[in-house]
């Protein structure tokens, strides 16, 4: 329980740092010094001190969007197992709740975007809901593969000590699932090659254009929520790929945090070396991830 609580606090505290790592890696690739690792903390602090401006068309839905979005992502963290530590709440089928809480966050972010009455934000919301409905089956297939391999139906069981044994027996299937999961993580978190978080052209944006009208504390909630979500998917991918058991909880936490650092570097590397896909290709990427994970499932069930 204490281990779970420490992991959860680390999740809340270290998520913005992960984005700092990603941005620093991207800067290094581009030959720049880049912003400090703690830049997002400074940004959040600055935004929380500011006022906000609201569009004339907006209603309470626009204000509720960031609040519900962040609350849902934090609640999703309650059932997530970080680095093999048990989650704060664990029960069979908790990953369904996990996925649907992220769905709740997405639903309200899209509604807040539509509330502005801007066609750009409508466009972003349409893309977000379209691509996420292709990402959901891939995510669930990956989770089913992990459930089948570990013989457990809760995230804590799937990412717990059974994972090491599962890698020995079902290595190829888990590898395929990890690759597919990485694709889903990139899509769900609006990273290149699906979406560019740094773009300045509204027509090509997905997630960033949805939150274009948020300002001040609202924007802080949105940005913190995005960082937490990236951390959640990172925890899933990192634990799946580094599934070995470590007896000491402290060492295990360290290994997990090291893995998260590696995840940040990997995302930064992908973002620096891969070109962004055309919008029409994104469903193909996600269907590709679905096919990969379905193949992994076939390997397990043969």
């Amino acid at each position: 329980m204490i281990r779970a609580a420490i992991s959860f606090v680390a999740f809340l505290a270290l998520s913005p740092l992960l984005l700092g790592v990603v941005n620093r890696v991207k800067a290094l690739f581009a030959g720049r010094t880049g912003p400090p690792l703690l830049q997002l903390y400074f940004d959040l602090h600055r935004l929380l001190g500011k006022g906000a401006v609201y569009g004339v068309a907006t209603t309470w839905v626009f204000r509720a969007g960031p609040v519900i979005g962040l609350a849902a992502v934090i609640a999703a963290g309650l059932v997530m197992s970080f680095g093999g530590a048990p989650a704060l709440v664990a029960f069979p089928g908790d990953f369904v709740l996990f996925a649907y809480l992220l769905g709740l966050a997405r639903f309200f972010t899209a509604l807040a975007a539509l509330d502005t009455g801007s066609s750009f934000e409508g466009m972003g919301a349409a893309r977000e809901v379209t691509f996420s409905s292709f990402a959901e089956p891939a995510l669930f297939l990956c989770l089913v593969v992990m459930a089948r391999a570990s013989g457990a139906l809760s995230l804590s069981g799937m990412l717990g000590d059974e994972l090491a044994a599962a890698w020995h027996v079902q290595g190829p299937a888990l590898l395929l699932a990890a690759v597919a999961l990485l694709g889903v993580a990139l899509a769900e978190n609006a990273r290149i090659p699906v979406d560019d978080p740094n773009t300045h052209l509204e027509l090509t944006m997905i997630h960033e254009v949805m939150v274009l009208d948020h300002s001040g504390p609202d924007l802080a909630l949105v940005q913190y929520g995005a960082a937490l979500k990236l951390f959640l998917f990172g925890a899933l991918v990192v634990r799946l790929t580094l599934g070995f058991p470590i007896a000491s909880p402290a060492l295990s936490l360290l290994a997990f945090l090291g893995g998260m650092l590696g995840f940040g570097v990997a995302i930064g590397t992908v973002e620096s070396t891969v070109a962004r896909l055309r919008l029409v290709r994104i469903p193909q990427l996600l269907v590709g991830a679905t096919v990969l994970s379905a193949f992994a499932l076939v390997l397990l069930l043969r």
Binding site: A57, V61, G103, F107, L111, G117, T130, S133, E136, F140
Partner: peptide, 22 residues
């Protein structure tokens, strides 16, 4: 999961187009 994603898309559309914006 696919059905859930599509349903969320559909109701974002319905609620957004009827109640939100101008």
């Amino acid at each position: 999961a696919f059905v859930g994603g599509l349903a969320a898309a559909c109701f974002a559309k319905v609620f957004g187009a009827i109640f939100l914006g101008q």
